[in-house]
Amino acid sequence: MSQHWSLPGELSVGDVARRSGLAVSALHFYEAEGLIRSHRTPGNQRRYPREVLRRVAIIKVAQRAGIPLKTIREAFKALPQERTPTVADWTRLSSAWKAELERRIDRLTRLRDHLNGCIGCGCLSVRDCPLHNPLDRLGEEGPGPRLLDPD
């Protein structure tokens, strides 16, 4: 582990990549997006505090759950002095994201369960449309597939 010109406990970008399982380019991207921070050594090498591993873990879990990077960044910025989230912070963040995940699950379940039926597009060309969409009433609710994508 190379830590020339770094403080004890600091990690190089390669160290963070190995420990987190992310590519160096992903870490550079996260840094450019304001999700993680490093400082530069006199030799212009990035050094990260050890707690960056927790931030990266939170980012990875949130992304797997479908949370946009913008939402993750806003959550981090809302922390006092943009500190690394504590257990209490994680509990609060994950609770806030849970409602959005429930909405997505409900939407995907509805899509899965009705995928073979009418999508409510207003086309009136499918034989079943008069049953699902008599007189194109769904057209009054707006464009697009109103039954499967009501948002």
Rank of each mutant, 00 (worst) to 15 (best):
I72C: 00
A78H: 04
H132W: 09
L108S: 06
F29K: 12
P143L: 08
E102K: 10
R50H: 07
L69P: 06
A96V: 14
E51G: 03
T84N: 08
K70L: 14
L69A: 11
L115A: 13
R55G: 04
A32S: 15
L108I: 13
E102D: 13
A78Y: 01
I58N: 02
R50D: 04
K60T: 14
I119L: 06
L115Q: 06
R92S: 13
D89F: 02
P49G: 00
L135W: 01
T71A: 14
I58V: 08
E31I: 03
A57P: 02
P80H: 10
H114R: 15
A75E: 05
K98S: 01
C129F: 02
Y48E: 11
L124S: 13
K60H: 01
A99C: 00
S95P: 04
L101S: 13
I36G: 05
E102L: 10
L138I: 05
E74M: 03
R37E: 05
D89C: 03
G66D: 05
C118Q: 08
A62C: 10
R37H: 03
K77E: 11
G66T: 08
S125L: 14
C118D: 09
P85N: 06
S125D: 14
N133T: 12
L93V: 05
T71R: 13
E140K: 11
D113H: 07
R54T: 14
C129R: 06
D128M: 12
N116G: 07
I67M: 12
N133L: 09
A32C: 04
E141K: 09
G34C: 07
